[in-house]
Design a protein around this nucleic acid. Structure first.
Lengths: 340, 340
DNA sequence: TTGACAAATGATAGCGCTGTCAAGAATGAT
DNA sequence: ATCATTCTTGACAGCGCTATCATTTGTCAA
């Protein structure tokens, strides 16, 4: 049953005493062949260890079983969870996942999409809504379900599964204000469009509450890291020593900021409130536990795949769906300034 | 140049005024067609936006450009970095990466390998050396370069790029002893074979130094997390309150243990030394910074791809290579008990 | 100029599978 | 028993590309 030479349909057919096309049908649509033949074919398949050749199938049908996934980073925990949801959702189906990594570069994304679209994918899942015009053109004209994830688009090219990062940031910022913090600051890394939307949410709430100050904003285009969070807090304290709370662009920064606060013997949450974003597992375990905004990363992956498979099942003509998966502020000790 | 209907070789050939096969050659082996024809073909390719159909190519050549990668988890930072190295190394070549996730299940691994081998991959990269007998059979008989990564095998099925986790753990454990800790413990999660090898390293060094005690070993088969690190330390302190240092199976546990120590006002490193494994970015940023064993994850990915591409270039008959990429103990404050 | 040889290009077949249509077998109503 | 209908099965062609061999063109020495 091992053996490394390929077994073809024809060989299975010969062994089962039927024609090749019948074997093909027995495998793909077991319902339409007779019980007897199906059993014979199954036995032959098992005996020879036959595995279909996907390339031949693809060539013959012009449709692949590959769901292309385009994300900006594979090391970022957020996308790792999304991808995990995608893989789990694909498990047990006939689909395969093909990952593409844009490294946060719109032009690399364009290149990846060009390649993907030339391979007649079964579906396409892309992170974000900030594609280039050319990328959007490709997505609009490609003949397969397309799902944008992470965010909600006012003008989606296909389906959309995500949440409003702007609203989520507003929520978190309002929480800081509610907790009594009056000199709130912002720590941001990478500053990609998604981050900037979070920043606007923060800024608007802070301004409305009259607690916004440019001096308390520390951002960089450098990729995020825990170490960077420490540095950014150090920079912020240098510029604005009176800051009493920070909203961090993501949890790495928040954790780094917590460590820096510990180094400086700044008590969290009393002297400094810290709020992160994403709610990675580690921030809930921190001491003190860090407040963060949970976003349903894993679910986004799963549901994106669902939309793709549904789109294929309904043969394309189902309406564009926009799923707002929301977010959840998880208030923890790091922002518990008021007694509770 | 956009357009979503496929452009075929034949159309390019017609436009360039040559035959299909000439176009094929102009693309794959530009050296063997005349300058004039090559230019005409290139112009036609550009004008039509031609992209080769990989399925047809695969069917015709019987060789795909897919490097299969089999790892136990996609969310684990360690593998994320390995995968990142793999993707970076593949970038700019003609190869593609196809990821398979075993979820630490040998039988799932076997299934994945079965699928991969049926697709005539260009190469196969698998994590670890603890495959089932059936998996090893497949790997041994498959007609493409195979690379086992993460560890060093005494009896590799193909190439090997990794390090001795046993030795690395010995090193880290010896460090704890050197620092003057005398009641060292071990925290372990998942307890997969790789983890167990680390445990043996720890155990042997601790026993040799006369500081080993079963009561100071806390392990679980649960997947690792920061929260789990806190719990395991709590369990350990309940069983053996006199423990003065811990070697943690990985950095998540180490960070969780640090947080738990902070909650209990146990001073690190004086009352409790903490050593992690992997040297993820976050532990170096922690307060106090956590000692850990760096392993060249990213490089493992890169070099695995190199071995695959070399193997293909040399057409199979290059000798099996075993690359020990080593490790590096990064001693930090969390184990700096002696004055320094 | 001619022939010998190399370089460049083309014709043909086929990779393994599935879509399409045609034919045969089974079923039920009359 | 006969015919119409459905259910099963098969023959054939072709998806887009490349391996192989055949042919044409170009180059150089005699």
């Amino acid at each position: 049953m091992a053996g490394n030479k390929r077994v073809t349909l024809a060989e299975v057919a010969a062994l089962a005493g039927v024609s090749a096309i019948t074997v093909s049908r027995a495998i793909r649509q077991p319902g339409i062949v007779s019980e007897k033949v199906k059993n014979r074919v199954e036995a032959a398949v098992r005996e020879l260890g036959y595995v279909p050749n996907p390339a031949a199938r693809l060539l013959a049908t012009g449709r692949s079983n590959v769901i292309g996934v385009v994300i900006p980073s594979i090391t970022n925990n957020v996308f790792a969870d999304v991808v995990s949801g995608i893989y789990d959702a694909v498990e047990g189906t006939d689909f395969e996942v093909q990952l593409g990594n844009t490294r946060y570069s719109p032009s690399q994304e364009e290149g990846l999409l060009r390649i993907f679209s030339s391979q007649r994918p079964a579906g396409l899942i892309v992170a974000g809504i900030d594609q280039t015009a050319a990328s959007l053109d490709m997505l609009a004209s490609i003949d397969c379900p397309v799902v944008q994830i992470m965010e909600l688009s006012a003008d989606p090219v296909g389906h959309c599964v995500g949440l409003s990062h702007y609203e989520a940031a507003r929520h978190a910022s309002a929480h800081l204000v509610e907790q009594g913090y009056r000199r709130v600051g912002f720590l941001g890394a990478r500053m990609d469009p998604r981050t900037q939307r979070r920043f606007s949410g923060f800024r608007e709430v802070a301004e409305a509450a009259g607690v916004f100050d440019e001096r308390r904003v520390c951002t960089t285009t450098t990729p995020s890291s825990v170490t960077l969070g420490s540095q950014l807090l150090a920079d912020l304290l240098a510029k604005a020593p009176d800051v009493d709370a920070i909203f961090c662009n993501n949890d790495d920064l928040a954790l780094g900021a917590l460590f820096e606060a510990q180094r400086r013997r700044l008590s969290v949450p009393d002297q400094l409130g810290i709020c992160g974003f994403n709610d990675l597992e580690m921030v809930s375990a921190a001491e003190p536990a860090i407040t963060s905004v949970f976003i349903p990363r894993y679910q986004m992956g799963r549901q994106a795949v669902d939309l793709v498979t549904q789109g294929i099942a309904s043969d394309g003509e189902n309406p564009t769906e926009i799923r707002d998966l929301g977010f959840e502020l998880r208030a923890r000790r790091s922002t518990a300034r008021k007694q509770d």
